[in-house]
């Protein structure tokens, strides 16, 4: 389990990184924290001719509040979010501890996790729930991609050739919204067997804004729009069972050694119910 032969580079600016990407095309692969990529190299499931280590590019390490939300640079580590806080982004705060273990979060990055687009990963689900904007840097400048169109398949994103994920802007939720992050994994720190992220706002007991995302139950994290629809205008308590049933029905899970598709539907129903109980006023 040793990486295949490869070259390594470490640019100091985004422009240098983009130049290398342009020059080496398909052969090149950005290396952020490497917590998914290096295991893939060790398994020889990935064979880039050139690794572009983006870890020393200061521009990618920004973390700041902007008008449109909480901006996090691609190479900000998950540990930094855990240690320095998530700037009031409650869903992110709840989700981060579920990412692997401390040792993984120490190196793993926000951009790396999102660009890797593992269907069972936490941050893509948070991004989808918060209608995040992914900002891609390319030869022609920056391009915004909304979360819903960023994840296009298991381990596949919609970045174009020559583009790098520069940063992510996590959107705001209404001030009254409450968040929950529920994940079922076999062991602490394992990838989810199923998970639900929720941000729900209510006014006088009625749901005014419901965002529910299921992950690890299909090729991508998916907004539970049917369940969100069920909740609209109702009290969480009264809609709980219907929302859970709708959520279980609208996903397209698959079988693996940890459970059948049917089991994952049961899990999503359970987790949806529990997440909604968490956010009930």
């Amino acid at each position: 389990m040793k990486p295949p032969p490869l070259s390594y580079s470490r640019p100091h600016s985004l422009d240098e990184a983009l130049d290398l990407l342009a020059e080496h095309g398909d052969e090149a692969r950005p290396l952020a924290g490497g917590q998914s990529l290096v295991p893939m190299l060790n398994h020889r499931l990935s064979r880039p001719g050139l690794l572009i280590d983006i870890g020393a590019i200061a521009q990618l390490q920004r973390m700041e509040r902007t008008e449109s939300g909480w901006l996090i640079g691609a190479t900000v580590t998950q540990r930094r979010l855990e240690r320095d806080g998530t700037g009031g982004c409650d869903l992110l705060r709840l989700a981060v501890p579920f990412i692997g273990h401390r040792q993984i979060r120490a190196r793993g990055t926000v951009g790396g996790s999102i660009a890797h687009a593992d269907p069972a990963a936490e941050l893509p689900a948070v991004a989808l729930t918060l209608d995040a904007t992914m900002v891609a840097a390319g030869p022609d400048g920056e391009r915004e991609i909304d979360a819903a169109s960023f994840f296009v398949g298991p381990y596949m994103n919609s970045l174009a050739e020559g583009e790098l994920l520069s940063h992510v802007v996590f959107g705001e939720v209404p001030p009254t919204a409450r968040c929950s992050f529920r994940e079922f994994a076999r062991r602490k720190g394992d990838f989810a067997v199923a998970g639900v992220a929720a941000a729900v706002a209510t006014d006088d007991g009625s749901v005014t804004d419901a965002r529910l995302t299921a992950f690890a139950v299909g090729s991508n994290p998916v907004r539970l729009s049917a369940a969100e629809g069920v909740l609209a205008g109702r009290s969480i308590d009264s809609a709980l069972a219907d929302a859970a049933e709708a959520a279980a029905a609208e996903i397209e899970p698959w079988d693996d050694i940890h459970g059948s598709a049917q089991y994952r539907r049961q899990l999503i129903a359970t987790l949806t119910k529990r997440a909604l109980q968490d956010v009930a006023p």
């Binding site: 389990m1 040793k2 990486p3 390594y8 470490r10 290396l31 490497g34 917590q35 290096v38 295991p39 060790n42 398994h43 690794l51 280590d53 540990r79 692997g100 273990h101 401390r102 040792q103 993984i104 120490a106 190196r107």
Partner: peptide, 25 residues
């Protein structure tokens, strides 16, 4: 060599890190 067991954990700049899924470079 896949970042699961933790036997290779080291202290890197004050953080516990798995040295089997990092390149020396």
């Amino acid at each position: 060599e896949q970042g699961i067991c933790g036997a290779c954990t080291i202290n890197l700049d004050g953080e516990p890190v798995r040295s089997c899924i990092m390149l020396a470079a």
